[in-house]
Write a protein that binds this DNA or RNA. Structure first.
Lengths: 209, 209
DNA sequence: CATGTAAGTAAGCATATGTTGACATAGCGT
DNA sequence: ACGCTATGTCAACATATGCTTACTTACATG
């Protein structure tokens, strides 16, 4: 997890860690919004207020930066998943579980991220064409779905039908993120947590209840 | 070396309409799969087996081709929507409606399109950055959601809550399309209509029932 | 202060990209 | 057969792109 610093306060001169973080942040923003191929290294460097060559210094290549962004997005998502399934394993309280999942998904979609903070789920939908990155992002998405299924009592080796339903639930979360990214898609794009949660509640209940 | 016309392709005779269609088809494939910015006009022309310059002849620019692709995707989607809501307005048979919607979404996701046939919903998620194209794709997505809501009895001016739920349903369809595009995302990516339909049945019931 | 090293900069290279304009040719009406 | 026009080809352009190389500057350490 990164702590993004105030870009003005980030004037700390010659701080390798800070510029690395700035590049990572800018990369996530652009890769999420425009995809890998449509993003240029100069855009990223400008956004980060940093020289272009430093991308290659710190991340070897554009591709390297992209993979680093994927890993970062995965870490963010890991946190979100932890919220869905607290590790107290004893909770067989189905009603509580579905409610918590619904709330988590709704909050993740409507969550007040800083305006410049990219939505991690969206980054995981972006492809660079590179096989390594492809496997990485696929594994993260699959892992997230398994975590959802796990919250409903599923474990590896169990019936695939449950996992399929969890993946459809993930699909809903993904679709909401995608459609909300399109400004003007009312009422979904402007829906608040209070409005979205009951909808998700019904959806989760239908899929994992 | 002169690249004369492919001798195997039997010298397609000069047919403006055919090459226009070939370019449109190739464009849809590439724009859908790689996005606007990551697709090059030379890729499209090669795929279509046609000279690059013809893109500009028939569509003015890469941007023009993209907009034409959006319109084409909208037309395809229009057909799919017609399947959801046959125009016989008298059907207040809620159970039949939800079942039909679920079947239509499932079929749209798992449908046996030719392998090279792009999924229209996915193209509508791609952005070129151009404002006109942006409005176009947004209107198409919104229209599709309204059609879903309409199948559940909603009409313009009614409670937004119903439209919101229809949009979440559309989000599910979108998310499924996106995740199925990622090869290896089992079991969703390999799910058949028979497997997916009951899942969608429950989802639609929960959202619009 | 001197100096070695980490951090940052500037310029350029090789290739890719969208677009254009001049040219070629097939096919049709006359 | 002749030429006209729609259709298609080719080469070039201006710029964009990812990356490397040689250079400069700040800072910690002696």
């Amino acid at each position: 997890m990164l702590t993004y610093m105030d870009p003005v306060a980030a004037r700390r001169p010659r701080d390798a860690e800070a510029t690395r973080a700035a590049l990572l942040h800018a990369g996530m923003r652009f890769f999420t919004q425009h995809g890998y191929g449509a993003t240029t290294v100069r855009q990223i460097a400008d956004e980060a207020g940093v020289n272009v060559a430093l991308i290659n210094r710190y991340f070897t290549s554009k591709e390297g930066l992209f993979e680093a962004c994927l890993v970062e997005a995965g870490a963010v998502l890991e946190n979100a998943a932890a919220e869905v399934a607290p590790d107290e394993a004893g909770s067989a309280d189905d009603d509580g579980v579905t409610a918590r999942i619904a709330a988590a998904i709704s909050r993740q979609a409507t969550g007040t991220r800083a305006a410049d903070e990219p939505h991690s789920l969206l980054l995981l939908l972006r492809s660079s064409g590179d096989d390594d990155a492809e496997r990485l992002r696929l594994a993260m998405l699959a892992g997230y779905a398994e975590k959802l299924a796990g919250a409903a009592g599923w474990t590896r080796g169990d019936d695939d039908a449950v996992l399929l339903r969890a993946q459809v639930l993930l699909a809903t979360a993904v679709g909401i993120a995608v459609l909300r990214a399109a400004e003007g898609f009312a009422p979904l794009a402007q829906a608040t947590h209070a409005q979205l949660r009951p909808v998700m509640r019904d959806t989760v209940e239908a899929l994992l209840g």
